[in-house]
């Protein structure tokens, strides 16, 4: 049996006093790809931000154990260095900081945490070039300011490049498919597939089934009103695409 990477039990959380998560449970094992689907406002993105430690959300109950460690005790940067990576739905622009400098600072922060020597610009260039090749990205990406003036697709690919460099144990992709045309979606999905490793896990947060045509999940969860209502195999995503979310919500109401 594979190692459990992430275990979430009875998690409740709020923002500005409004409850968003109401008893959330999830377990992810090494090598697995999970997808959380759900209608807008179900709490999917909130959950991803809580995993990464966004200060706007307050956890009011339950626990999150990441590789045997209480994740809620860690600062966001410590979570990242421990192997949690969140690809943002809306990556921020940082004019004035070149992408390559940003990537190197980030990469070296992780190396330092692991007790490794930091890489100088020259050695880092070798590492980043190999990732660019793997992801079929244009090296000109590196010299631009972080996300400034990037198209939607470029921003998402830049998130994946960061993920490729940091090699997280748990990669969380928050609506990585939103706003992408089909070609850009295929590129992003193939990059995610290229990064898959048996010891790592991926959590995909999405509103649309479309992405799951290109990244095959092991487990699909349906989330609504701050909880997971139903879990199943990849066929569940197709069922949702065909029937919408209502039948899950309705069957839950009947069962309750």
């Amino acid at each position: 049996m594979s190692d459990v990477i992430l275990s979430v039990k009875d998690l409740t959380a709020e923002v500005d006093g409004n409850p968003i998560l109401k008893g959330f449970n999830l377990e992810i094992k090494a090598g697995e790809i999970h997808a959380i689907m759900g209608p807008n406002g179900s709490g999917k993105s909130t959950f991803s931000k809580i995993l990464a430690g966004h200060p706007a959300y307050t956890v009011t109950g339950g626990e999150i154990v990441f590789q045997g460690q209480n994740l809620l005790e860690l600062e966001p940067d410590e979570r990242a260095k421990s192997g949690v990576f969140l690809a943002f739905q809306y990556p921020l622009e940082i004019p004035g900081v070149s992408n390559v400098d940003f990537l190197r600072v980030s990469y070296n922060a992780k190396r330092k945490h692991e007790g490794l020597d930091e890489l100088d610009a020259f050695d880092f260039d070798e590492v980043v070039q190999s990732k660019l090749t793997l992801l079929k990205m244009d090296p000109s990406f590196l010299n631009r300011s972080v996300n400034e003036g990037f198209s939607g697709g470029e921003k998402k690919r830049n998130e994946i490049l960061q993920m490729a460099l940091l090699e997280p144990r748990l990669g969380i992709l928050d609506e990585i498919d939103s706003g992408l045309d089909i070609d850009a979606l295929k590129v992003v999905a193939s990059s995610v597939n290229a990064l898959k490793k048996p010891e790592n896990a991926t959590l995909i947060i999405t509103h649309y089934q479309r992405l799951l045509n290109y990244i095959t999940p092991d487990v699909v969860h349906v989330m609504a009103k701050g909880r997971i209502l139903k879990s199943g195999g990849k066929e569940l995503a197709l069922e949702l695409e065909a029937k919408g979310y209502d039948w899950v919500l309705d069957s839950q109401a009947v069962g309750a």
Binding site: A52, G53, H54, P55, E75, P76, D77, R79, A80, K81, F85, L86, F88, P91, L92, I94, F102, V105, S106, A109, K110, H113, Q162, L166
Partner: peptide, 13 residues
Amino acid sequence: DEVFYLQSRGIEA
């Protein structure tokens, strides 16, 4: 949000 973005990449606040 900007600080958080950098933190989520392993950079201290």
